[in-house]
Design a protein around this nucleic acid. Structure first.
Lengths: 128, 128
DNA sequence: CTACATCTTTGAGCGCACTCGAAGTCAAGG
DNA sequence: CCTTGACTTCGAGTGCGCTCAAAGATGTAG
């Protein structure tokens, strides 16, 4: 997370103006850092800035917004669960395809394409 | 995947010009569909278009590019594995935070903030 | 004192990946 | 014959999330 990004987050209201040193430089407290870490986690898992803004605004209001905030987090958690499934599927698909490439390489090492009409990996279903 | 996206993929070279019906309409073969499905999987797991272009170009060349293509897939698979870890961590963090919100809601239901200086979730380390 | 680095501000710019709109062609249905 | 609708082309536009540039203030080292 760059300084530029921190400024940006402040501008769009994700971070409240933090304490300053006498010279005007920002001094981030541990609480600030924890909050920034949380923002980072949410972004890293594809929560849109808009959603984070909604959450941050509710957080400013206080405990009375607990339900709404919880809903946001629960929704995002569900989105994360879905993402994990997609990633796992892609991971499995890649394992399959990588194995196929190893086979192709083996065939080449053994001595060029023995079969003239080499079965391109593209022609194998779901092995492209 | 919208028609617009398919056209876009064709324009940027991810999809080779496909067969056409007499009227000029595209006819996607099963092989085309498999390839498109693969592209979709890679995009869904955050492979950049540029990388997919590199892969698609190598694929056009043929089996001799197996090693390079395998490397691309292996790298992406590693990226996916890393992504899964991040998502799992965020998922765990959210479980924690959601539980905390339930506690806050419980406290509110029991009868308003008993403690005047209510411990805002913001003040709890890594519970923001 | 002089460099030099590091922060400050603001608005503008950028890269990515679509996404859309306009104008045109064609095929079938009523 | 005329409408409807699905396709075609191409360039231009959009939204997101940064990312940077310029000009200025301040602090630290030699």
């Amino acid at each position: 997370m760059t300084a530029h990004t921190l400024r940006y987050y402040e501008r769009v209201g994700l971070i409240q103006p933090v304490e300053r040193a006498r010279n005007g430089h920002r001094r981030y407290s541990d609480a600030d850092e924890a909050w920034i870490h949380f923002l980072h986690c949410m972004r890293a898992t594809s929560m849109p800035i808009r959603e984070m803004q909604r959450y941050a605004a509710l957080r400013e209001v206080g405990d009375s917004t607990s339900l709404e905030r919880r809903k946001i987090l629960e929704d995002h958690q569900a989105a994360i669960a879905a993402q994990i499934v997609e990633l796992q599927q892609a991971h499995a698909l890649l394992t399959h395809k990588i194995a196929n490439y190893r086979k192709i390489e083996q065939r080449i090492r053994i001595g060029g394409p023995q079969i003239i009409e080499a079965e391109d990996d593209c022609t194998l279903a779901s092995t492209n």
